[in-house]
Design a protein around this nucleic acid. Sequence first.
DNA 1: ACGTCGACCTGTGGGC
DNA 2: TGCCCACAGGTCGACG
Length: 305
Amino acid sequence: MPELPEVEVVRRGLERWVSGRIVSGVQVLHPRAVRRHVAGPADFADRLVGRRFGAAHRRGKYLWLPLESPSGNDGPAAPEGTSLLAHLGMSGQLLLQQGESRDETHLRIRIRFDDDRVPVSGETEGTELRFVDQRTFGGLSLHDHAPGQPDGLPDAIAHIARDPLDPDFDEAAFHAALRRRRTTVKRALLDQSLISGVGNIYADEALWRSRLHYDRPTATLTRALCAALLVHVRDVMTAALAAGGTSFDSLYVNVNGESGYFERSLDAYGREGEPCRRCGTAMRRRPWMNRSSYYCPRCQRTPRR
DNA sequence: ACGTCGACCTGTGGGC
DNA sequence: TGCCCACAGGTCGACG
């Protein structure tokens, strides 16, 4: 489940329902789901059993939970340690389920808990965490903590930039990188080593709000334009998060299987042929990098070459 | 070093 | 109805 707001919805669910629980069993039903775990499925399972999950963290579209020893006082993400890393890819879901409930069609990994926590406010407590993923672009893996990084950040994602909702996001460095690079603005927004968490939907939304064409060269972006773009990226993501994320179908859900409703608030993405909410001009869709870009031909003028 | 493109998967919906 | 193609929210590695 794709972009930052949807992943943050999942992180909050993990924090509430998974952090602090002890793993009693792991079943890898599809090896591709753990392909980033180089030592293989058996090692993945062996190293997880008996460990307790720490706090849930996120950077961009990646999620991770540091592993603690079951007795517990490891403190917050020991500098030398291991974290469970998760990426949802295009279609991944992390779901809390009752052990007796039927397996999902695309169930890839099952993580069982051996505790029996008292249900909060009368809700049913799932006894297992399931990774369900139709297209298998996502996956789980275990990684050492990156040296000198906080919260047990997995070394495998040390190259991922901070995301725009991170208080330590470096706006000056981002602008400097845009000026230095010879690329276009949407490509830059989707480059997770420059800014993380932005995907195809929120890139189009932020560009529409900024009145910027997706093919605008980044070298032409002034500090003010860059600042405005970042404001719009943050605004649209914050609004989407408040709505529980964007989902066009049941593929994108929180840990309890519920969808968000931000789709109805989208101004650009998926609106081909519909009137621009600012000027009424018919919105356009253009093939772009094996996907699509949606924009208003009047508000977002094609940059001159 | 940097920028671009295709590969990796499964499923769905539209056109014929 | 059935077939085929286009398309789907992401990332990475190979190549120029």
